[in-house]
Design a protein around this nucleic acid. Structure first.
Length: 419
DNA sequence: TCTGGGGTCCTAGGACCC
DNA sequence: TCTGGGGTCCTAGGACCC
């Protein structure tokens, strides 16, 4: 059996831990710049507010119903996520962290326990220790476990835990499950399936494997098998290093000036280098992009995008910043208002075992020592060291409704500029 | 006025090889 | 007009996820 532990309305639930008076009230959490809705309480969902709705388009509903809004507070959510993961780790032989608010538990080899009460107890435990409501679904495959967890959200009498394993029970659930609610069936496949009369997960199961392979490829086959109770999606207990790392933001208003845009890109570059070092990787390719506002259709659109291979793989903030600076000057166009920019690191390999030329060994050793020192200072002291070209201004963004850093306090620290 | 950020995997097609 | 047969590797784009 596999379990899925899925936090209900996760970002909203984190905010509610410190604002219990908001339980039972409509609440939403916003993306960067307070742009879009990225989390909703059940009450907000009931008002018709959709995931991804721009705030300005649902302003009326928000004002009319007194919906409480929060700017996203990612450090807070990451901290809750960490606490819940530690509870899950104590409760299962192996866990696979799937996202900030979901983890699979590998229960293969676990027997002689009552899975239904295990699921309910695990949910209760998470709630008791963190204040976050968590749905736990248990089933023979990951896809079915997802569906079981979904059931917990619809049926409170399940008390947060659902064990779904009997063939007839599974069939009953799949007959009622809209095809678009199946994990892996997205917005492109849904209309194609509905066109041929496949409206539920059960209908999908009745299709021939051959049809699925021809029309939906290997992923379709995996979904089909999983729904039939045959595990087809692997279990990854150890988090593998990311194959690409992207840092990008939309700005609260357009940036025209090169130096100002460069400051932002340098920040993304530095964040990228830090993430590379955190996973003990180096990258051999950097992509820098800078876009105009795609919603202002009447204005000139510029989608600057450049990808540069690096002669030597690196994790050095200094090298990465330098390359990104050159890249940006190649794509920057004077007189254009940039609304979004970012840096992507790819061709990522472990830092151990990378090949260095005889000319670069010394350069590299120096950078490596410097980066280690900076990372150590930044993680263990109340100072923050960064490259001077980042400038002294924060990333240009709005977040007018952010909650306090209740459990994390690394922000608003003294800043030291070097280099 | 206002529109998120960060990933993964698969596939088709092109370039190139013999 | 018509144009072999088989392979590999790379990349861009599609589709999906949270």
């Amino acid at each position: 059996m596999f379990a899925l532990a899925d936090c209900n309305n996760f970002f909203v639930s984190c905010e509610r831990v410190f604002r219990p008076e908001l339980n039972g009230r409509p609440v939403v959490v916003l993306s960067n710049n307070d742009g879009c809705i990225i989390a909703r309480s059940n009450e907000a969902k009931a008002l018709g507010i959709k995931m991804g709705d721009p705030l300005f388009k649902v302003r009326d509903i928000i004002n009319r119903h007194g919906v409480t809004i929060f700017s996203g507070n990612m450090p807070l959510y990451a901290d809750f996520s960490r606490r819940i993961r530690s509870i899950l780790r104590e409760s299962a032989p192996q866990i696979e962290v799937y996202s900030i608010d979901e983890a699979f538990l590998d229960l293969r080899g676990v027997d002689n326990i009552n899975f239904d009460s295990y699921a309910k107890q695990l949910s209760l435990r998470c709630r008791k220790y963190t204040g976050i409501p968590v749905s736990v679904g248990i089933a023979p495959t990951k896809t079915l476990a997802k569906i079981a967890a979904q059931l917990c959200k619809s049926y409170p009498k399940l008390r947060g835990g659902c064990f779904m394993h009997r063939k007839e029970d599974i069939e009953k659930v799949l007959r009622k499950l809209p095809i678009e609610d199946v994990w892996g069936i997205g917005r492109r496949s849904t209309p194609r399936l509905k066109d041929i009369g496949v409206n539920t997960a059960y209908d999908f199961c009745q299709l021939s494997e051959e049809w699925i392979r021809r029309n939906m490829g290997i992923n379709g086959i995996r979904i089909w098998r999983e729904l039939h109770g045959i595990p087809a999606i692997g279990f990854e207990s150890s988090a593998s290093a990311h194959q690409s790392i992207c840092n990008s933001r939309s700005f609260s208003s357009e940036i025209y000036d090169f130096t100002e845009l460069l400051e932002q890109v340098v920040k993304f570059a530095a964040m990228t280098a830090e993430k590379l070092r955190a996973q003990h990787s180096v990258c051999s390719r950097l992509t820098v992009f800078a876009y105009t506002n795609r919603f202002h259709e009447q204005e000139i659109q510029q989608c600057g995008h450049i990808s540069l291979p690096l002669i030597e793989p690196t994790d050095s903030t200094i090298d990465i910043v330098r390359t990104c600076r050159e890249a940006l000057s190649d794509i920057y166009v004077r007189g254009v208002g940039y609304k979004k920019a970012g840096v992507i690191a790819s061709d990522i390999i472990p830092s151990e075992g990378r090949h260095l030329s005889m000319f670069s060994a010394e350069h590299n050793a120096r950078h490596s020592r410097l980066m280690q020192t900076i990372d150590k200072i930044n993680s263990t002291t109340e100072c923050h060291i960064s490259v001077a070209s980042q400038g002294m201004n924060a990333i240009k963004a709005n977040s007018l409704h952010r909650s306090p850093h209740y459990t994390t306090s690394w922000e608003e620290l003294p800043v030291v500029k070097i280099l």
